[in-house]
Simulated assay, not measured.
Amino acid sequence: MGGIDKSTTKIVSGAKAVSLIRSGDTVAFSGFVGTCTPEEVICDIEKRFLETGEPSNLTLMFAAAPGDDKDRGLNRLAHDGLVKRLIGGHYRLVPKLAQLATSGKCEAYNLPLGIISHLFREIAGGKPGVISKVGLGTSVDPRNGGGKLNSNTTEDLVMPIEIDGKPYIGPNRTGPSDRYVHYA
């Protein structure tokens, strides 16, 4: 056996991965509480930001609160200037990010955890988003706020869609939000 052909592998260090992140980018995070949370990458983002001020104005997207209710996980990234927007499905174990959201220091959305998880799969497959009935009639419904958590959050990431006379929620494909990864 010849082993792994390292010339084709996409495995890089956390620092190398973080060096590819530019200010204004959207960064999606996996993990459920502390399980499978990319702690090394998160630490490297924080370190780079504290040392250089870059990357800044990031959109952080996560499904299941990758944190520990204290200082680990995405809690490390709750620095003024680092975060512009949060798109999360569960904030309980990332209270430092929740504080940024409730204080209005960043834009913030709370969208269904399961839908964000499905969206990660769709993004990996190069698809434009998820269309779902999940969230209809709730605060996620764009007619009831679209999951916005504060008054600084103005962009509509989702919109009502009708297919065969039935209501759904889907990605807002109009206007400047086309540059973002969408919940739908």
Rank of each mutant, 00 (worst) to 15 (best):
V158N: 14
I116A: 02
R85Y: 07
K47S: 11
I161E: 01
A108E: 02
A78M: 11
G34Q: 08
P55M: 03
H79W: 07
P160F: 00
V12T: 11
D68P: 07
D156C: 04
G2V: 09
C106N: 01
I87A: 12
A108I: 05
G67T: 12
M61V: 15
P112C: 00
H118N: 07
T153R: 06
Y183Q: 05
V27S: 07
G147F: 11
R72P: 06
G175F: 09
L74C: 13
G146L: 08
H90S: 02
L82I: 09
F62L: 00
L86T: 06
Y183L: 07
T154S: 05
D71Q: 08
P142M: 13
R173K: 10
G129V: 01
R179S: 13
V27F: 07
R48I: 03
A63W: 10
R92G: 10
G3R: 15
S7I: 04
Y168C: 10
S19Q: 09
F29Y: 14
S23G: 05
E46K: 10
K166W: 09
K127I: 07
G175I: 09
I11W: 10
P128T: 06
N150D: 03
L97Q: 06
G88L: 00
G135N: 09
D71P: 02
A17V: 07
D69A: 12
T26W: 00
L157F: 14
A15N: 14
A98W: 10
T138W: 13
I42K: 04
D178I: 08
A17W: 14
A108W: 04
D164M: 04
P142S: 13
S139I: 04
E51A: 10
M61Q: 12
I11L: 14
K133M: 13
G24K: 03
D164A: 05
P95R: 04
L157M: 14
L149W: 01
S23F: 00
T154E: 07
G125N: 14
I45V: 15
A98C: 10
K96W: 09
R76N: 08
A15L: 15
R143N: 13
I163R: 14
T153Q: 00
S117F: 11
S30E: 01
P66L: 07
V12D: 10
D80R: 13
R48E: 05
H118P: 02
G126K: 05
V83D: 04
C106V: 00
P160I: 08
A64Y: 11
L111V: 10
G81N: 12
K127M: 14
E162V: 15
V94N: 09
M1I: 11
S139P: 02
I42V: 14
V18N: 12
H79K: 11
V140E: 11
S103H: 07
F62Q: 05
I87N: 13
I45K: 09
K148R: 15
M1A: 12
F29L: 11
K16H: 01
N150V: 02
S30T: 01
I161P: 03
I116V: 05
K47E: 14
G137V: 02
A64S: 09
A124H: 03
D44L: 06
S151M: 09
F62M: 05
G31H: 03
A184C: 12
P95C: 03
H79T: 02
A98D: 12
A108N: 06
L157V: 12
I161Q: 04
T26H: 01
T9M: 06
Y109M: 05
A64D: 09
